[in-house]
Design a binder for these strands. Structure first.
Lengths: 211, 211
DNA sequence: GTCTATATTTCGATAGAC
DNA sequence: GTCTATCGAAATATAGAC
């Protein structure tokens, strides 16, 4: 009777349903935007009555905020790869690899983030001003140390970071356009490898870290 | 009485009001998304009664479609700069200059386009499959000729185009994030020049067109 | 061509039985 | 914790006088 496998505790039920709802919400918010998404669509995709969504998330905005926070944390974790590297080839190369992998595996999260920022970040402005600003300052300093050590050309670190974000996230946010230009078919495994190689090659050469 | 300056003809009234509505619509669609935008918000911004919008544009989607077409044509015109150039330094350099200028002067149009593509291009899919695909094929061939002539490294032309679009449009689409990281202030004239120089320098060196 | 009033639909959110 | 029924607000779009 108290076997968790047969009779899940309240907490486990809550976590399971929250995850289910969050996955459905990410997809619907990505495809329709915040304003275009409806609680009914999310509920249908999750296979739950609409009222249950309001039981787990008080408002549509609460649900949306959780979706945005998720992708932000995924990106922050991926950035660890940059910190332990001995130089830009390894550090920026690993960061590009990680960001490209996320664009492939979490395209919807990336789109929700992009949409949120494009609309003026009404919900996560505090993240931009605290966590993201601190992260950016630290990584700009790291890049500057590589420049001072002669490991790459003297570029503006902020604009390099913008280029890294823009280029890698483009494969998620504009994935539909890329797919259309690819004859209507998603990029294959080989094409994704090619994309990563091309992005790394052009950027690492662009900053003088590779000959 | 028939003086056009005092007594505008019907056609002129129509064009004036259409332009007024389209400008307001671009701003509202950019800030709220298609689903979040309301005809009332657009009407208020244009200073017209809501019913007048439906007199000039039958539906919200018709109005939206016109806004998306506008930015697309602006980008196509800007691409002329690439065609007459003797090589990648001049051609891609001029294209980056033009795209960066558009990101600064038409950030809302860029955001509406980005949002449309992110949501699967429900309204302008035919543009992607015809005009954009042809444009991309032609420019990829142009880049390939520069490669064959030894004017740049052998990169994948499509991925170079993606990098150009991503990097330049990022300054419009993620302008709010950039502004926040810039201390809450928009980029100054000097900072926009710096951005253009950095983007051109990194990309042109990345493709081996500059030493 | 302009504008007020309104029809109709749909949404977010909640009440209350189970 | 689940679900049906429903409320009240807000949206698109239109009717019809001017």
């Amino acid at each position: 009777m108290t076997d968790p496998a047969r009779q899940p505790r309240r907490l486990e039920i809550r976590q399971q349903n929250e995850t289910l709802i969050l996955q459905a919400a990410e997809k619907v918010f990505a495809e329709a935007g915040f304003g275009g998404a409806t609680m009914q669509l999310i509920a249908d995709l999750a296979g739950l009555p609409k009222a249950n969504l309001h039981y787990y998330f008080a408002t549509k905005e609460d649900l949306y905020r959780r979706v945005v926070q998720n992708i932000f944390e995924i990106w922050l974790n991926a950035a660890q790869s940059m910190d332990d590297a001995p130089g830009p080839v390894e550090g920026i190369g690993a960061y590009i690899d990680a960001k490209m992998d996320i664009s492939r595996r979490h395209p919807n999260g990336s789109k929700v983030w992009a949409s949120e920022v494009m609309h003026g970040a009404p919900v996560i402005q505090d993240y931009l001003e605290t966590t993201l600003r601190d992260w950016t300052t630290d990584r700009a300093a790291l890049i500057q140390r590589w420049i001072d050590a002669g490991q790459m050309r003297p570029v503006n670190p902020e604009h390099l970071l913008y280029m890294l974000w823009a280029t890698t996230q483009h494969y998620a946010d504009f994935g539909h356009q890329i797919e259309t230009l690819n004859g209507g078919k998603p990029l294959s495994d080989a094409q994704w490898r090619e994309a990563k190689d091309q992005v790394k090659s052009m950027i690492l050469r662009g900053i003088g870290a590779l000959p």
